[in-house]
Design a protein around this nucleic acid. Structure first.
Lengths: 239, 239
DNA sequence: CCCTCTAGGATTGTCGACAATTTGCGTCTC
DNA sequence: GAGACGCAAATTGTCGACAATCCTAGAGGG
């Protein structure tokens, strides 16, 4: 009766995703890539007609994004794409540092270092490809995929959940300040060294590299602020 | 024209919270305290009539809780309160450890150690009160308020956001396994020592105490698993 | 000329009803 | 008696319309 296992390995329910989830994902991508710039107001009526759905599912998608922190809701006013202030850059990278540090620890101490390293190396290859094609957007995407893969490799449901929004916010930063990126070789090399430390099981080095990776990014995106120094950034706005 | 600042400091819009937010908060509390045990199915129609609202706002509240990770949605089936498996205890505390560690670092390095320590001491006083009245539920609540206060004190929007669900899940653990708690004096003392280290600006000690605090909790709630050892728990289920 | 008040338009918040899908039970067949 | 098929009840998913609220523009008065 049952089909022999191994056949049709990719069979899945026809409509696995809810309508709201599809809409949410599309909006997420649009926000992430800058198609919907920070501060943009999203009218429910307009979006509903654009997506060819009623306002019900659309509102659900919006609520989802609000609770994720990508949209900010002003009651009876509307929904707006969040705009990142300088202080937010610091906050995002401090939070990412905490999450990825934990993920790295679990990756190093778990028993699958080589398998994880292989996965990560594939994303670095993507970075190299994007770099050779001089595609900054693809490069940023590949960069984030590296970090996403690292967090997935931790095997922690909650680290993955918490990181989702952080990575999108990171992408927003990179999109907004795309001018200030370092040399691509350096960027690739930092990740490569990270993988090597992971493969060697050298936790201390891996964590140190991760910290400096974050620190570099912060100083490049928000000059004058520092993670390790520990002071809150000059512009507060994070309470 | 404008009222002199300082007068009427607590004036706020009449209905600051949306209906969905009110419902979500009530359900959160119910889940947290165990009034809605894990696995419970939440019927939209029933809840709507209970809250005296339409299914629209109610669904929004549910979606919010789903994206927070407290409810799990099965399409065309219904919404269920998540049930925590043994592996989740490990996962929750590993994630909390990452978050609170980052919060502690920012609290120690920021310039308001004493003010923060005072706030934290107030929550420890709550713990002592609950302990003297032999109220385990209030004790757990006060315990979590300590950690919530610590994270708030970090001043990081994102740490606060990520911790919200974690603390609720922690409360679910404590509710489910309320039998296995340590001596109250010990419990209070651990927090007191944490505050002292913070007040002294002794980052290393504070972090070490925090780690051991988490490690203790994990070993008490899920015997046989360890955070520092680094192995994934025997029962996986976290991918 | 500036401030205030009012009317208009537009947007969100809420509701009740209809459609689609799933699950469980009853029945029929072998 | 066991398995498969089909039907029906219940639940979620979706829709369109109405009500409440807020911003804006313009007229009126000081």
């Amino acid at each position: 009766m049952a089909l022999p296992p191994g056949m049709l390995p990719e069979i899945e329910p026809v409509s696995r995703e809810s309508t709201a989830a599809v809409i949410a994902r599309q909006l997420r991508d649009a926000i992430m890539t800058g198609a919907l710039p920070p501060g943009t107001q999203l009218g429910e009526t307009e979006l509903a007609s654009r997506f060819q759905v009623s306002r019900g599912p659309l509102r659900e998608a919006m609520q989802h994004l609000v609770s994720e922190g990508l949209l900010r809701s002003e009651r009876h006013r509307g929904l707006f794409v969040i705009d990142l202030e300088p202080g937010d850059v610091y906050d995002i990278y401090a939070a990412r540092s905490a999450i990825e540090r934990a993920a790295m620890i679990r990756a190093v101490r778990g028993g699958e270092r080589d398998r994880i390293a292989d996965v990560l190396e594939r994303t670095v290859a993507e970075m190299a490809t994007a770099a050779s094609e001089d595609d900054p957007s693809a490069l940023s995407t590949a960069d984030l995929r590296f970090h996403e893969a690292l967090i997935n490799a931790s095997g922690s449901k909650r680290l993955v959940r918490m990181a989702r929004t952080l990575l999108i916010e990171t992408r927003m930063c990179l999109t907004a300040l795309q001018s200030t990126y370092q040399r691509v070789e350096e960027r690739v090399e930092e990740h490569t060294k990270l993988i090597q430390a992971l493969r060697d099981g050298d936790e201390e080095t891996a964590l140190a590299l991760l910290d400096s990776h974050m620190e570099d990014a912060v100083q490049r995106l928000a000059p004058g602020t520092s993670l390790i120094e520990g002071h809150a950034p000059p512009v507060p706005g994070n309470g």
